[in-house]
C-alpha cells in the first residue's frame, strides 16, 4: 500500500524510501520511539499531510480515523456528534455502540460534561459509525483507565469483526498490541525503517500473559523497542 515513501519536514527526514504492505481485514499495531513519525504516517495515509516522493495506493478505500485527542464538536451533544458522520439508516447503530461503550446515559451530554476517556470513547464510536474500509487509530486508549481498557480492546476487536475493516493502530502499550494485533510493526528512529515485524496467529481468547509464544514475541519486541530508543 505504501511504496518508497519519502517525507521531510524542512531539514528533518521523517521517511526515506519507506514501504509497508497492508493486508486487508487485518489489525496492525505500529510501535516505535516517540517522534519517529508514526503519527505522520497515519496522517499521510489519511491525506492530512503531503509527502515528497513515493506512492500511497488506497485503491479507492475509505478511511476513518481515531485521533489522539477526541476532536468532538463542543457545540453538539454526544448523539449530535455521532449523527454527523452516519447516514439516516444507520442511526440505529448509534444506540448499539453507545451501549457497548457504556455511554448510553450520556447521549444528550455535551463534550465538556464528559471526562477525557469518555470523549475518546465517543470518538471511537464515531470512527466505527463512519462507513470505511481502513480505520486509523492514533493511541486511542491513552486517556482511558486501565480497568475499562481491556474491555474496550475486546469491544474494538468485536466491532472490527462486525464491520470487517482493516485497522492500523499506533500504540505505546505492548499489552494492547499483543491483544489486538495480527501484526506488530516496530519502527526505528527517524528516518523511520521497519526494524521488526511479528505476526501473531494466536486466537484472541488464548492470548493470556503466560502464553508461551506471546512471551517470546514480547521479549523480542522489548529488545527492539529498547534498541530503537537508544
Amino acid at each position: 500500500m505504501i511504496k518508497n515513501l519519502s517525507k521531510n519536514f524542512g531539514e528533518i527526514v521523517v521517511f526515506d524510501d519507506f514501504s509497508l504492505d497492508i493486508e486487508e481485514g487485518k489489525i496492525y499495531c505500529i510501535m516505535g520511539p516517540s517522534g519517529c513519525g508514526k503519527t505522520t504516517l497515519l496522517r499521510i495515509i489519511a491525506n492530512l499531510e503531503s509527502y515528497d516522493k513515493g506512492n500511497i495506493d488506497l485503491k479507492g478505500k475509505k478511511i476513518s480515523f481515531i485521533f489522539q485527542e477526541a476532536r468532538l464538536l463542543p457545540w453538539k451533544t454526544v448523539r449530535g456528534n455521532l449523527e454527523l458522520v452516519c447516514k439516516a439508516k444507520e442511526i440505529k447503530k448509534i444506540d448499539q455502540y453507545l451501549e457497548v461503550m457504556e455511554l448510553k446515559e450520556y447521549e444528550h451530554s455535551y463534550p465538556k460534561e464528559l471526562s477525557g476517556g469518555m470523549k475518546q470513547r465517543v470518538s471511537m464510536i464515531r470512527a466505527f459509525l463512519y462507513p470505511h474500509d481502513i480505520l486509523l487509530m492514533d493511541e486511542p486508549f491513552q486517556a482511558i483507565d486501565v480497568k475499562l481498557k481491556e474491555k474496550l480492546y475486546k469491544e474494538v476487536y468485536k466491532l472490527h469483526k462486525e464491520v470487517n475493516n482493516t485497522i492500523i493502530a499506533i500504540t505505546h502499550d505492548l499489552e494492547e498490541a499483543l491483544f489486538l494485533a495480527d501484526k506488530i510493526i516496530i519502527l526505528s528512529q527517524k528516518p523511520a525503517k521497519i526494524l521488526y515485524q511479528a505476526s501473531l496467529d494466536i486466537p484472541r481468547r488464548d492470548r493470556n500473559p503466560d502464553h508461551e509464544v506471546l512471551t517470546k514475541v514480547k521479549k523480542q519486541i522489548l529488545k527492539y523497542l529498547y534498541h530503537a530508543s537508544v
Partner: peptide, 18 residues
Amino acid sequence: LMEMAQVFNFSLRKKIFY
C-alpha cells in the same frame, strides 16, 4: 476540527453550519 471534518468527509453545508 477542520481535519476531523475532512476525514469524515463533511459537505460544505455541514462545514459552514457545524
